[in-house]
Design a binder for these strands. Structure first.
Lengths: 222, 222
DNA sequence: CTCTCGTATTTCGTATACGAAATGCAAAAT
DNA sequence: ATTTTGCATTTCGTATACGAAATACGAGAG
């Protein structure tokens, strides 16, 4: 007999819904969060909404204006640069750790994730590709067995998703980055950790340039 | 005329007090957090306490037991390893970034922090030394101008403080690490960023070994 | 005496209530 | 017409209320 479902609280539910709305762009930067409104929309009282917003505030997704409302943080291009600067170091490092802990790496899991990525790539839907991309990288973080990397990147992916939501409004810049994923996995399982790490560094660098271009250039097309 | 003080909410106050109590060891791992009790002690209602605990939960400082109470997370030695594994890469990186942004680096600030460290070192109080150590490293994070590094390390220092609170109960293991700090600053301002980064890597490695020893060995003395 | 179960008490999550500050608006003043 | 000012309304933070689930505890069965 299995233990009963660990009931989620309304605070957690509300938090997840809000963070999703922010990262998907449904709540754009600068948008004011009205507690009554949100509470009504989610069919809960204002209290869980208030708590959820406190968490968002502590995590830097929203900021209060000093007045009586909190707003979704503006998307800072400096933050974007920080994230990729950071990933350029952390992602190759995660690969090296994964190489050391190869016992925890699961080839079947890798194949599944890679297949999902191929499918998303062929479908051409950038949002699907983003989802698959995130899953691939989170798999690597898991293999690294380093909880700090996992936690910090979880936060970062929120911001990445948020910035990508902006990109998605622009022309569909197809990112030609998927094939490097399978190369990384191959190198890892061939025990060539150093090569895998190098490919990852190149991969992040390429992703940054592609996205930075898509972000800075969209005005040209409109 | 200056603008009025931005009043802190009771939720924030409560959160800060709780996180401080956890990191100082006043609330040891496994301790149950009773909302009524905390509310009474802080002279607030249960509501801000409840919200503050939600934030702690989201940030992994406390966990709920599935029952009716949340407890302070047990201190995982794996997490400790993760943090120093991570710092071994991130701290030298932060130094390299600081070297590039040397314009923001403030020699006077550095001297002040270094002097405070010397004083704490001579006083022999490990808690003061820890405080000064944290300030030194946070100065470097600031110079790196990378917000992701700052944010992730802020969380990590909570855990470091928490683990050090354990160490402090044991024999006073004096950590002979302070002089490396001034060496790092010197190299930086001499524009020898690479050397500074290397010293930082060595520094973190030394700190890890010293602390790991102090943590694993305290039983011997009791 | 030990175990089991029913009941009282504690404790939490959430809803509602309430006061204070911010905002909107319209009438009065220039 | 534009600005100022006082009042009504909105909105938030916090306190209190309430029901449900967890725990403690004692009485009865074995």
């Amino acid at each position: 007999m299995d233990s009963v479902k660990p009931k989620r609280t309304l605070v957690e539910e509300t938090y997840n819904i809000l963070i999703d709305a922010i990262c998907s762009g449904e709540l754009p930067p600068g948008e004011r969060l009205n507690q009554d409104e949100i509470a009504a929309k989610l069919n809960v009282s204002r209290q869980p909404v208030n708590s959820a917003i406190s968490i968002l505030k502590a995590n830097g997704l929203v900021e209060d204006t000093g007045r009586r409302s909190v707003v979704v943080c503006s998307f800072d291009s400096g933050l974007f640069r920080s994230i990729f600067e950071y990933r350029m170091v952390i992602e190759p490092f995660a690969v090296r750790l994964a190489g050391r802990n190869l016992a925890v790496a699961d080839r079947q899991q890798a194949d599944k994730v890679l297949r999902a990525g191929d499918k998303a790539f062929k479908s051409g839907k950038l949002s699907d590709l983003l989802q698959a991309d995130m899953q691939f990288h989170e798999m690597i973080y898991g293999w690294s067995c380093n909880h700090v990397i996992q936690a910090s990147m979880k936060t970062n992916w929120h911001h990445i998703r948020r910035s990508m939501a902006e990109v998605l409004r622009g022309p569909d810049a197809v990112l030609q980055i998927w094939d490097e994923h399978s190369e990384i996995v191959d190198c890892l399982f061939k025990r060539d950790t150093e090569k895998a790490s190098q490919v990852m560094e190149h991969h992040i660098n390429g992703a940054y340039e592609a996205i930075a271009e898509a972000i800075s250039a969209p005005e040209k097309s409109s």
